[in-house]
């Protein structure tokens, strides 16, 4: 489903990449920008968390002539008196204006890096309103926003995510180069699809979807759990080879009573000694109590 989203099938979509301090969504966002640029579409980036140089540096290899960067990085609050783009310009009129300035014909994709920055300075209701208007407005084809979920209250994250047509939550994967994406996608018919995929991002920003963990949510066992196998590093052998098993089965143990042993014990061979016992007078053998002579 992740590769579907990267191809950007539907117009009027609003996609949120949610991350936390454990796993940054910045690389996935760059991959999305690169994917849009490779489709020859216009991209407008509202950059608060990343400088233009850093972004263009990260997008090496992608055609960047259709990339328009609106610099909210150097002066987002107007402290130095010549701000390029401030956080307070985040409203429908301003955004439509700056998008229409450069891409008159084709609707463009708007990248917001990040929504968290805006939500810190503009009230959540105003942000939601602007986003909703942008979705309906027509100047913007798709909106892709990055949201640091652990920076806001749950209610704020929830209300912004309700607007989105797709939400990708990134989480750290098992290996260092992998990450897990939990995707919730709402199609126009109202159907909600959820999926979980493991992906990694290559040097050239292509996203490789590695596998789909099964739907039942049976996760791969933790590496720690695997290490806990008690039979892993034994100093002795727990298993038998076939020859060893054969030898083991052949061995007769002392307590086992075979037929030969029984006959040997019961019928002594001729010539061997026998014990004959004839009780004499002193032997007061009592049938009733054979242990009479014992001092008990």
């Amino acid at each position: 489903m992740l590769s579907e989203l990267l191809q950007g099938a539907d117009t009027g979509g609003f996609l949120i990449i949610q991350d936390s301090t454990n796993c940054s969504g910045q690389h996935l966002l760059t991959s999305f920008i690169s994917a849009v640029l490779n489709r020859d579409e216009f991209v407008h980036v509202l950059g608060f968390e990343i400088s233009e140089e850093e972004l263009r540096d990260g997008l090496k290899g992608s055609p960047t002539q259709r990339l328009h960067f609106h610099n909210g990085f150097t002066d987002p609050l107007g402290w130095t008196n010549h701000p390029a783009f401030t956080v307070h310009q985040f409203n429908l009129e301003e955004l439509t204006h700056i998008v229409k300035q450069t891409s008159q014909l084709k609707p463009a994709t708007l990248i917001i890096n990040s929504l968290s920055w805006i939500l810190r300075h503009v009230s959540p209701s105003a942000v939601c309103k602007t986003l909703q208007q942008l979705k309906k407005g027509g100047a913007v084809r798709t909106i892709i926003g990055l949201l640091h979920a652990d920076m806001h209250q749950k209610g704020t994250v929830g209300s912004v995510c309700h607007l989105a047509s797709s939400v990708i939550t990134v989480a750290p994967g098992m290996k260092a180069d992998e990450a897990v994406a939990k995707i919730t996608k709402r199609s126009k018919s109202g159907k909600v699809m959820q999926d979980e995929e493991i992906f990694n991002i290559k040097e050239d920003l292509t996203v490789i979807v590695q596998s789909k963990p099964s739907q039942t949510g049976s996760k791969q066992p933790d590496p720690e759990e695997q290490e806990m196998d008690p039979t892993a590093n034994l100093t002795f052998n727990l298993r038998l080879s076939d020859t060893e098993r054969e030898a083991k089965e052949k061995l007769a143990l002392p307590f086992m009573f075979s037929k030969e042993k029984k006959t040997a014990l019961l019928h002594s061979s001729p010539g061997s000694g026998r014990i004959l016992y004839e009780p004499d007078a002193n032997d007061d053998y009592d049938q009733e109590d054979p242990d009479d002579d014992l001092d008990v």
Partner: peptide, 12 residues
Amino acid sequence: WRRRQGDAQNTQ
């Protein structure tokens, strides 16, 4: 380390 180093995209 949070910056992308080589292929490891996640934090190390």
